[in-house]
Design a protein around this nucleic acid. Structure first.
Length: 302
DNA sequence: TCACGTCAAGCAGAT
DNA sequence: ATCTGCTTGACGTGA
C-alpha cells in the first residue's frame, strides 16, 4: 500500500502544471513552459521520495496543448532524455504513477469530434508514460463519460470506442466510478465488455452506490486487475464539512480515513488522496497506514 | 503592482 | 437560460 496525492505540492513552491493561453502559443513559450514543468515534477518526486509518498499523479498540463492541432513541435524528441531521466527516478524509487485526463475527455460522446479529440488526448497521456519508459502498472484513469439519457447504451458505446484504441492506450486505461452517473456497479458492466481494470473512488461511492460494502467492492475490484497492471488503485477523499455533497475536504479527516482502512481489510491497494492540502494530508495518512498490521515496512515501499 | 475579464475542450444537475 | 463543479485558479492586458 502506497500513499499519494495529485499533481501539486504546496510545500516546495514550484508547480509542474504551468500553462499559457492558446493565443500566446509559440514554440519558444512551449519549450520554456515544459522545461519548467519537468523541473518542478522532478523536485516534487524528490520531495515525495524523502517523505515516503510513493504514489503520485502527474498533471495533464505537463505539456500544454500537446494534443491540440496548434502544436506541431516535436516535444517528444526535444525532451526525450529529460523524460527518460525522470522515468529512471520513478523506477529506482518504486514510485507508482497515475494520470487523470480532465472532464473534456469523453470517450463515449455521441459527437464524433469529441471522441476524436478525446483519443488524441489519451494518446498524449500515453506518450508521457511511454517516454518515461514506465511499466504498464502506471495508469491513466478516466470516467465512463456521459449518460445521454441511456446509461447502458452509453457504456456499450464506450466499449466499442475502446476496442478501436491503440494497444498502447488500452494497456494504460482504467475506469473510475463517478459520483453522478456511473456507479461502481455500472463500471463492472463496462469491465465485462472490455476487461478494463476498475479504479475504486471511495468518496464517489459514498455519494452514488448500490449499497455495497467497501469490502464487497474491493473484492470485485481486485478481480479486474491483472498482475501486469499492478495492485489496484483507490482514490480517497472525504466530505468538506458544511458544503454540498461531493465537495472535497481541505484536510484529511483522520477518523474517516481510519474507518475506511478498517473496512478495507484484508485487501491491498495504492491510495490517492484527493484532498486539497495535498502532501500534508498524505503525510498524516501515511502515519496511520504505517501502524496497520496488514503491511510490513517492506510492503509499504514496494 | 494589482484589478479583473477571460481562458481548448463536455456534461449533468441546480438555480 | 445560466451557472457550477470536476483534481486545480491562473493568464495576461490595461491602468
Amino acid at each position: 500500500m502506497k500513499i499519494g496525492y495529485p499533481c501539486i505540492n504546496w510545500t516546495i513552491g514550484c508547480k509542474g502544471d504551468r500553462t499559457f493561453r492558446l493565443k500566446s502559443y509559440s514554440e519558444e513559450r512551449l519549450i520554456e513552459t515544459v522545461e519548467n514543468n519537468l523541473d518542478c515534477l522532478t523536485k516534487m518526486l524528490k520531495y515525495n521520495i524523502d517523505n515516503n509518498l510513493l504514489f503520485f499523479r502527474i498533471t495533464s498540463d505537463l505539456v500544454p496543448f500537446a494534443s491540440h492541432p496548434i502544436c506541431k513541435f516535436n516535444w517528444q524528441k526535444y525532451f526525450k532524455n529529460k523524460f527518460k531521466e525522470i522515468g529512471e527516478i520513478i523506477k529506482e524509487n518504486n514510485i507508482r504513477i497515475s494520470m487523470h485526463p480532465d472532464q473534456f475527455i469523453v470517450l463515449n460522446s455521441i459527437k464524433t469530434d469529441v471522441v476524436k479529440r478525446s483519443i488524441a488526448e489519451l494518446y498524449y497521456h500515453t506518450e508521457i508514460l511511454d517516454l518515461m519508459k514506465l511499466e504498464k502498472t502506471s495508469k491513466i484513469q478516466l470516467h465512463a463519460g456521459g449518460a445521454y439519457a441511456n446509461k447502458k447504451e452509453s457504456l456499450i458505446r464506450f466499449a466499442e470506442n475502446f476496442k478501436k484504441l491503440d494497444r498502447k492506450i488500452k494497456d494504460r486505461l482504467v475506469i473510475e466510478n463517478d459520483d453522478r452517473i456511473f456507479s461502481f456497479q455500472d463500471c463492472l458492466f463496462l469491465h465485462s465488455k472490455t476487461d478494463i481494470p476498475l479504479l475504486f473512488d471511495v468518496f464517489h461511492h459514498s455519494i452514488l452506490n448500490n449499497k455495497e460494502s467497501i469490502k464487497n467492492i474491493l473484492e470485485k475490484q481486485n478481480k479486474t486487475w491483472k498482475n501486469i497492471d499492478g495492485i489496484p488503485m483507490v482514490d480517497y477523499s472525504s466530505q468538506k464539512p458544511g458544503f454540498r455533497d461531493g465537495s472535497h475536504a481541505e484536510k484529511i479527516d483522520l477518523k474517516d480515513f481510519g474507518s475506511f482502512l478498517k473496512q478495507s481489510k484484508p485487501y491491498d491497494f495504492d491510495i490517492m488522496l484527493e484532498i486539497k492540502d495535498k502532501e500534508n494530508s498524505a503525510k498524516k495518512a501515511l502515519k496511520i497506514v504505517e501502524k496497520d498490521k496488514r503491511f510490513t515496512r517492506k510492503e509499504l515501499i514496494q
